[in-house]
Structures are given as structure tokens and as C-alpha cells.
Simulated assay, not measured.
Amino acid sequence: MIEVYSWATPNGHKVHIMLEECGLPYRVHAVDIGAGDQFEPDFLAISPNNKIPAIVDSEGPEGKPISLFESGAILLYLAGKTGKLLPAGVSAKYEVLEWLMFQMGGVGPMLGQAHHFRIYAPEKIGYAIDRYTNEAKRLYSVMNKRLAKSKYIGGSEYSIADIAVFPWLRSWKNQGIAWNDYPHLKGWFDEIAARPAVKRGVEVLADRRKPLVDDKARSVLFGERQFRQH
């Protein structure tokens, strides 16, 4: 059994979708990041960066328990554990990995900043909004060009690269995106969204998440509470 410590965010949904696609048994533990659950000692013991998601696999390598944090690392672990969603061939595997790193280093951080300055920041800073909205559009363009010549983000087969990217694009409106500008990416998005495992994955903990409308939650995620932990 895999214990999943998570919340209904793009990074959380990556792991929820992966577990559904792989058919692994798992149990979800809600980590309410607006309430500050991510700072609890038990969670920090498995996720020292106080970020979701994290997992504990009671049947890890050599039959021993293992815990992991960072969504990309978890996707790679689950792919290795099951032999699914990561090609065995060397060239194909590294093609998937470079697009996984593209998501981890670009899509997630940059779209996260677009969300922050467009939606959550208490002060609307024009330069920041323009900077990250334009970067979101650039990243969408990169993916659109990729999918003009490749069936999936990571190559010819559906993989962890697609699973990593997809949840971040579900908030395209908040990122200032118009789908008409990215027809190849939109076609891919619709195909991934229709997968049964993806539908199940994005519903995990979705009923628990609430809009960040109060100052306490904003402080926990973006302010003093976040920074005084380090």
C-alpha cells in the first residue's frame, strides 16, 4: 500500500493520476496547505521542503519502506516500480526525461508565478503580471510546436511527461491563455483529459480544496508562516 500525502493542486494531481494509471493501491492523507498542515513534524519528516506531494511505500526496494518527496521523483519511482509510462529504450527514455525536466524546471515554476501574480498577490504589479503571462504563452507555444510533430509530450507514447504537464494546464484561464492560439496542444489536452484514470486522479481531494480568500491562508502559503520555518 502506498500512502499519499497530498492536496488538490497540479503537483498533487500528478501523483494521483500516476497511481490511477498504474493501478497501484493507495491511501490518501489530506495535507491542507491553506491551514498549514505542511508544517507538521510528521509531514516534514518525509517532505523536508514542506511541499506536497510526498509518498511512503511500505513495499519499497528490497521489501523495505521508502519515502519520497518532489513530484518528479515520485513519478520516476512509480514508473520504475511498475515498469509503466517510461520507455525501456535508452533514447526514448531520455526523450521523456528531458520533457519531464522541462515541466519541473519551467512549466510548473513559471505557471505557478503566473497564478500568483495574476490571482493571489495582494498587490497587482503590472510588470510581474506581464512577465509571467508572457512566459506562460511562450511555454504553451513550445509545447504546441512539440505536439505538431509528436503525438505526446515525451514522444510517440503516453508517459510520465504527459502526466506531469497536464494538471498545470487545467488552469489555463488563470494563466491568460487563449486555446485558439495553441491548436495542437489543445487537441492533446482534450485527449488526456478524457482518459478514465486522469478523470479519477483529478477528483482526488478536489472536494476538500477551497479558494484562498482569507489572509490567514495567504500568510501560510506566501507570507511569514512560510518563511519562518527555515
Score class of each variant (00 low, 15 high):
Ala194Trp: 06
Ala79Tyr: 02
Ile153His: 11
Val220Tyr: 00
Gln103Asp: 09
Ala164Cys: 06
Ile2Cys: 05
Gly187Tyr: 07
Ala45Tyr: 01
Pro211Val: 12
Val198His: 03
Ser171Lys: 05
Ile52Gln: 01
Phe227Pro: 07
Lys64Trp: 13
Lys137Tyr: 05
Arg209Ile: 15
Val220Glu: 07
Leu147Arg: 01
Glu203Trp: 01
Pro183His: 09
Gly105Pro: 01
Thr9Lys: 02
Ala193Ser: 14
Asp214Val: 09
Asn134Met: 08
Ala197Phe: 03
Ala217Gln: 14
Ala45Phe: 03
Gly126Ser: 11
Ile129Gly: 00
Asp42Ala: 15
Gly154Pro: 10
Lys149Met: 14
Trp188Ile: 00
Val90Ile: 14
Gly108Phe: 00
Glu224Cys: 07
Glu40Gly: 09
Val202Ala: 05
Ser6Asn: 10
Gly23Phe: 01
Arg218His: 15
Ser91Gly: 12
Glu224Gly: 05
Tyr26Met: 12
Asn11Phe: 00
Val142Trp: 08
Ser171Ile: 10
Glu157Arg: 01
Pro122Cys: 11
Pro211Tyr: 08
Glu70Pro: 13
Leu19Trp: 01
Asp207Gln: 09
Arg218Thr: 14
Ala193Met: 09
Arg195Pro: 10
Pro122Ala: 08
Asp57Glu: 12
Gly12Leu: 01
Arg225Gly: 07
Ile17Pro: 03
Trp7Asp: 13
His16Ser: 14
Leu85Ala: 11
Ser150Tyr: 04
Pro109Trp: 00
Leu44Met: 12
Leu100Tyr: 02
Gly126Cys: 05
Ser159Ala: 11
Ser71Tyr: 02
Gly223Leu: 05
His16Arg: 10
Glu62Phe: 12
Lys149Trp: 11
Lys216Ile: 02
Thr133Ser: 14
His16Gly: 06
Lys186Arg: 12
Ile66Trp: 06
Lys173Ala: 15
Leu75Gln: 10
Glu59Cys: 11
Ala114Gly: 09
Ile33Tyr: 01
Val4Asp: 01
Lys14His: 04
Ser156Asp: 15
Val198Pro: 13
Pro25Gly: 10
Pro211Trp: 09
Leu75Phe: 07
Ser141Lys: 13
Val4Ser: 05
Asp42Cys: 12
Leu68Arg: 08
Pro109Asn: 03
Tyr120Thr: 15
Pro53Trp: 02
Pro87Phe: 08
Lys216Cys: 00
Thr133Ala: 11
Ile125Met: 08
Lys173Asp: 15
Gly63Ser: 07
Leu147His: 03
Gly223Asn: 08
Gly126Met: 07
Glu21His: 09
Ile74Phe: 01
Phe39Val: 10
Lys84Asp: 13
Glu95Arg: 11
Trp172Asp: 02
Arg208Asp: 15
Glu135Ile: 12
Met101Lys: 08
His115Ile: 11
Ala88Leu: 13
Phe222Asn: 03
Leu212Met: 15
Trp172Arg: 01
Tyr26Gly: 11
Pro87Met: 08
Leu205Gln: 07
Lys51Phe: 01
Val204Thr: 04
Glu3Gln: 14
